[in-house]
Amino acid sequence: MEGRDDTVAVKRAVEADTIETGGSAINEATLRKIALAMERRGIIIFTDPDHAGERIRKIVANRVPGCKHAFLREADATKGDDIGVENASPEAIREALSRVRSEVVGASEEAQDQIDWEDLIGAGLIVHPEAAARRRFMAERLGIGYCNGKQFYKRLAIFRISREEFAAALAELEKENERGE
Rank of each mutant, 00 (worst) to 15 (best):
A77Q: 07
E28D: 15
R40L: 14
R40F: 03
E172S: 14
K154I: 10
H69R: 00
L142W: 10
E74V: 11
G80H: 06
I115Q: 05
G3Q: 00
K33D: 12
D82E: 15
A61H: 02
P65N: 03
A96S: 11
I45K: 07
I59A: 13
Q112K: 13
A70S: 06
V14P: 03
G122K: 14
A123F: 08
R57I: 00
D6V: 04
E118P: 00
E39F: 07
E86V: 03
L173N: 10
I26N: 05
E178S: 15
G106T: 07
L36W: 07
H51V: 14
H128C: 01
A88N: 09
E54K: 10
I93F: 04
G180H: 13
E91V: 10
E165G: 03
Q151G: 06
G53Q: 02
R12Q: 11
C147N: 09
G53T: 03
Q114H: 10
Q151K: 12
R55D: 11
F71E: 08
E103Q: 09
D113E: 15
F137T: 07
S108G: 10
A133H: 07
D6S: 03
A52N: 14
A77V: 07
A77S: 11
V85T: 12
R57S: 13
R136D: 11
V85K: 02
V105E: 11
T21W: 01
I45Y: 10
A92H: 01
I26E: 01
G106R: 04
P90K: 02
A52M: 08
T47S: 05
M1T: 08
R63T: 15
L142V: 04
A157V: 14
G180L: 14
K33E: 15
V60W: 08
A61E: 06
K150C: 02
E28V: 12
V104C: 07
R73P: 12
F152H: 07
A111S: 15
D5H: 12
A13F: 10
E15A: 08
G66Y: 04
D5N: 11
V100H: 01
E2C: 02
L36S: 08
A29C: 01
D82W: 03
Y153W: 11
C67H: 10
E174S: 06
C147V: 09
A25S: 11
S102G: 11
C67I: 09
K175G: 13
C67V: 15
I158F: 10
G22H: 05
T18M: 04
I144W: 05
R41E: 13
F137M: 09
E28A: 14
G84C: 06
I19D: 00
E86P: 05
I144S: 06
A123Q: 07
D76T: 00
M38C: 07
A157S: 13
V127Y: 14
R57F: 13
G180Q: 14
R73D: 13
I59D: 11
A9M: 08
A16K: 01
G84W: 09
G149A: 08
I158G: 04
A132R: 14
D76V: 03
A92V: 01
